[in-house]
Amino acid sequence: MADVFEELLGERERFRPAPSTAWQTVEEWLNLELPTDYKELVNGYGDAIFLGHLFVPHPQGADSLLTFMEEERKDFHAAFEDLRSSSDVPDDVWARVVPWAYHDWNGDLALLIPPLNDPGSSASSGDEDWMVAVAYRQSPEIELFPGGITAFLKQILKESRFPRGWPSSRTEKWKSVEGSPLV
């Protein structure tokens, strides 16, 4: 999987993954195991800005991943509750969505949607069983992208198919957050 990310994003700057205890703390709060490709992405490229606008936190980054997830999940539920019954996000996973990135151009939130067939853990599911969702803040709507993090990034970086309203003219694929303790 690391080879796929290097092909999409270039050479990684993070050579030590977050300690397993940091991931364990996040997964205990979520009450589920995160997909492997997501953890590999964050371990290699987290605490960074993708395409000039998409902030991806890291467990030990300038803004802690756990704090980010806690705050953004709470804000998501408050902002999008009115869409709950009409969105494509299945009701049984609504409470378990996982915020993984924030788009600072327009305030959109990128979410991971756990596999539908696995209520407590993704251990028996593959990374591709997860979905990425984009919660559009400007016009409240939630769009689902099947296939997980890897498929989502391939769609954007290889196929140049961006979620609605996301600037597509950025040439810099990613850069560390200024002052990141990980560099």
Rank of each mutant, 00 (worst) to 15 (best):
A2M: 01
F5S: 06
G10F: 01
R12W: 11
F15L: 07
R16L: 09
P17A: 01
P17C: 00
S20Q: 08
T25C: 05
T25Q: 07
E27G: 07
E28Q: 15
L32G: 11
L34H: 02
T36L: 05
T36R: 02
T36V: 06
D37P: 11
G44M: 01
Y45S: 02
G52E: 14
V56T: 06
H58R: 07
Q60D: 15
G61I: 12
A62P: 09
D63C: 12
F68P: 15
E71A: 02
E72N: 11
R73G: 07
D75L: 00
A79L: 00
A79V: 00
F80Q: 07
D88A: 01
V89A: 03
D91I: 04
W94K: 06
A95C: 08
Y102W: 10
W105F: 13
N106D: 14
N106T: 04
A110Q: 10
L111G: 08
P114T: 01
L116S: 08
N117T: 12
P119E: 08
G120P: 10
S121C: 14
S125I: 09
G126R: 10
D127R: 06
D127H: 02
D129C: 09
D129P: 12
M131D: 14
M131H: 15
A135E: 14
Q138S: 12
E141C: 11
E141I: 08
E141Q: 15
I142F: 00
E143C: 04
P146G: 02
T150L: 03
F152P: 13
K154R: 12
Q155T: 13
L157W: 12
E159K: 09
F162I: 12
P163S: 06
R164I: 14
G165L: 02
W166C: 01
W166D: 09
S168G: 10
S169M: 09
K173A: 01
K175M: 09
K175T: 12
K175A: 03
V177F: 05
L182P: 12
V183T: 12
